[in-house]
Write a protein that binds this DNA or RNA. Structure first.
Length: 473
DNA sequence: ATGTTC
């Protein structure tokens, strides 16, 4: 008997519209139609999609019928503002037109109050990466980003920089033994308080993600995620950690909320696009009103994903600190894909979305990475409201992943990395240092936004390699 | 970003 799973594509063929009904149908198939033939499943779903009204009270298919009906009643398209609200751009000459176009659309949303574009900005989905958007009582899942709570974390150790040069092999092994990328996960994941949160049992989408959260905790993802040893140089002795000016062996990590955040983002983006119909060019900027149940749920789930991302970083650093046999002198951490409740110039509460942007409120510490062959920066925010208390989250891409694979040569990239004195595990051409803007130029565009307290120079870097194809150990 | 199409 054919028992293959029905796909979203199959459901669309049956006449399912884009949106929540497809997800509901998938759930119902899992729960009530297990083992039934594909023909049987299709026939049942076809009847519902043709006449949802008859199935509203149906024990199994009721939720599907409900989603189909809500869908057809919420089709009113909201208009954008005629004129966009003005916003600030930092380093406009280095920002691609596509990112500026996206920001201009975001500034026309009826819920938008303020915006700013950071110097590392480039085109994304909905809001550009490097876009900051303050709204009135509305949260936009795609202005938070797919990797909710993605962040940087650095720990600084009382170990002289010479150790990195003398013990490169040892550091490489520490990364191999204590970090997991892509599909790979730890055999025995470490427990963490965040896994015990009641919320995992209170929101449907989170119930289905609890096992994944447990399995993936302490791991890093793919793409631009990394864990690296390097040298932090503290340039200012007047710092929060009482660290004397000097150089220290340090660990820097970049990663997010893994499958948990990705699935939360996907679920609520769809819900938002269902509930808030916007003209085509703005459709990905659909928001959830914070006074609705869906908005409240997303807010809670987003915060949980943020805490989960933080927990992953902390475990990464705990493992490496143990491998080094040291306790960190300092830990610096900041999100760059998230939304916060903050106050604007007029003292009103706004929802500030930072999609690939570093919080830079007055005195707020953060890390802005460069590339694996150029320094990152430890920064302190200046609280500039023109930028909505934000700064760039890195150098930003100049080459798309596709362009990078087309134009760069493996040999050339390897040579460049070797010449910089960097040891690399994993990575691909799409993450070569050459795909990033010059970080020094990017920093020069944001001197009004952040003060530089120190630098970080990568020495031994690990990124996702072949693990994305399924190696698990 | 992502068991990269629910």
């Amino acid at each position: 008997m054919a028992t293959r799973k029905l796909t979203g594509k199959d459901l669309r063929k049956l006449g399912f519209p884009e949106g929540r009904a497809i997800g509901e149908a998938m759930k119902v198939l899992e729960e009530h139609f297990k083992g039934k033939s594909i023909l049987h499943k299709k026939a049942a779903l076809k009847k519902v999609v043709e006449n949802p009204g008859l199935y509203l009270k149906h024990e199994a298919l009721g939720p599907v019928a409900m989603a189909l009906i809500i869908k057809t009643e919420h089709n009113e398209t909201l208009a954008l503002r005629e004129k966009r609200i003005p916003y600030s751009i930092y380093g406009a000459e280095g920002i691609e037109q596509g990112a500026i176009n996206q920001m201009e659309i975001a500034m026309k949303l009826p819920v938008t109050k303020h915006g700013a574009l950071m110097p590392d900005a480039h085109q994304g989905y909905g809001l550009p990466i490097g876009g900051v958007l303050a709204t009135n009582n509305a949260v936009i899942p795609y202005a938070v980003g797919v990797d909710i709570g993605c962040r940087m974390c650095m720990t600084i150790y009382d170990i002289p920089p010479a150790f990195a040069h003398q013990s490169t092999e040892a550091l490489k092994n520490m990364l191999l033994e204590n970090t997991k990328f892509g599909q790979a996960v730890f055999k025995r994941p470490k427990d963490h308080e965040v896994l015990d949160r009641g919320l995992f049992n209170e929101i449907n989408i989170l119930k289905s993600l609890k096992d994944r959260a447990w399995m993936q905790i302490g791991s890093s993802g793919g793409g631009n995620h990394f864990v690296e040893f390097g040298i932090a140089e503290i340039l200012n002795g007047d710092n929060e950690f009482n660290l004397p000016i000097g150089k220290y062996l340090s660990v820097l990590s970049h990663s997010g909320s893994r499958g948990v955040g990705a699935n939360i983002a996907r679920h609520y983006t769809k819900l938002a696009m269902d509930m808030t119909k916007l003209p085509g060019e703005a459709k990905h900027l659909a928001w959830l009103d914070l006074d609705t149940e869906a908005g409240q749920e997303y807010w809670l789930a987003m915060n949980l994903a943020g805490d989960y991302a933080s927990a992953c970083h902390h475990q990464i650093h705990e493992r490496l600190a143990a491998a080094l046999g040291e306790k960190p002198l300092a830990l610096i951490e900041n999100h760059h894909n998230f939304a916060w409740k903050e106050q604007d110039l007029d003292g009103n509460e706004v929802i500030v979305h930072r999609k690939g942007a570093t919080p830079a409120g007055e005195g707020v510490l953060g890390i802005i990475p460069g590339s694996m062959t150029s320094p990152g920066f430890i920064v302190k925010g200046k609280g500039n409201l023109e930028s909505i208390n934000s700064a760039s989250h890195g150098a930003g891409r100049v080459l798309s992943r596709t362009r990078a694979k087309q134009t760069l040569s493996k040999k050339e990239v390897k040579k460049h990395i070797k010449k910089a004195g960097v040891t690399l595990i994993g990575s691909g051409l799409d993450e070569a240092p050459q795909v990033y803007k010059n970080i020094h130029e990017v920093m020069a565009h944001q001197t009004e936004l952040v003060e530089v307290l120190g630098t970080f120079t990568p020495k031994v870097v690990r990124m996702c390699g072949d693990e994305r194809f399924g190696e698990v150990d």
